[in-house]
Amino acid sequence: MAGAPAGDATIAQLESTAREIRRDIIRMVGRAGSGHPGGSLSVTDLVTALLFHEMRNDPAHPDDPARDRLVLSKGHAAPALYAALAHRGFLPHEELLSLRQLGSRLQGHVDRNKLPCIEASTGCLGQGIGMAVGMALGARLERQSHRVYAILGDGECQAGPTWEALMVGGHYRLANLVVLLDRNGYETDGATESILGIEPIVDKFAAFRYHTIDIDGHDFGQILAALAEARTTVDRPTAIVARTVKGKGVSFMENTHVWHGKAPNAAETERALAELADPPAS
């Protein structure tokens, strides 16, 4: 699966999977009555491309030392990762609706001690990227060939420790590290650029010694090509700035901070699911 050429059929399959994941995100957050739909919907295509195409992983052997690692540094997008892991076969699909319930393995922010297929517990921004850097450093020490993927949020790029960790990755030329920025433009209180601008973000990554790729984060062709390009970059880490739409796929959630940390009610859930229904067969 990893590294397979991305034909039209592959991309159509990924798009279909992503649609299912988005539907699950809405169901999960709607049922839970709380959570972060906006940033989960924006990151869905990145997570889908990683888990269903790019990464070496096997639901039958979640602890395989050779597996690629995914660290969701923007841990509040947990619903997207849980849904993708369920579709990939790492957990029962019916478990998804237990999100945020007492006793559930599906914590509000991902917890590796509750769910074995989670690589790192995250949620406090600026920490996951540091753990990913540590994992990449460890893999290199062990002369292991697995790769480490870290997904950052754009609000997270305002946090100092994010840049500390990125600096370490650049300094040690961790070519086995790929940072994906879910650049959806919004954080809890509003638009990222109106609160504390992070642009020019591509230049910032470049200045921190990353190979940079600027893409449309909802175009699977571009996502897969960027991940392939990262594989061929052997002298430094890669940062993929994925321009995405907050709330992608649900019209009333798109391009606003309002749905960053708010769950849809029953009627809103139905409307959202209707919008995310399969397109008519052409």
């Binding site: 920490q127 540590g134 990449a136 450093l137 100092g160 960790a165 370490v168 040690y172």
Partner: peptide, 23 residues
């Protein structure tokens, strides 16, 4: 080869240490 002086970044000293420990 097994020693990393990360510079003045105590928060990330701890997260990188955690990432290495999860190896």
């Amino acid at each position: 080869e097994r020693f990393f002086d990360l510079g003045v970044m105590e928060p990330t000293l701890m997260t990188v240490a955690a990432g290495l420990a999860l190896a």
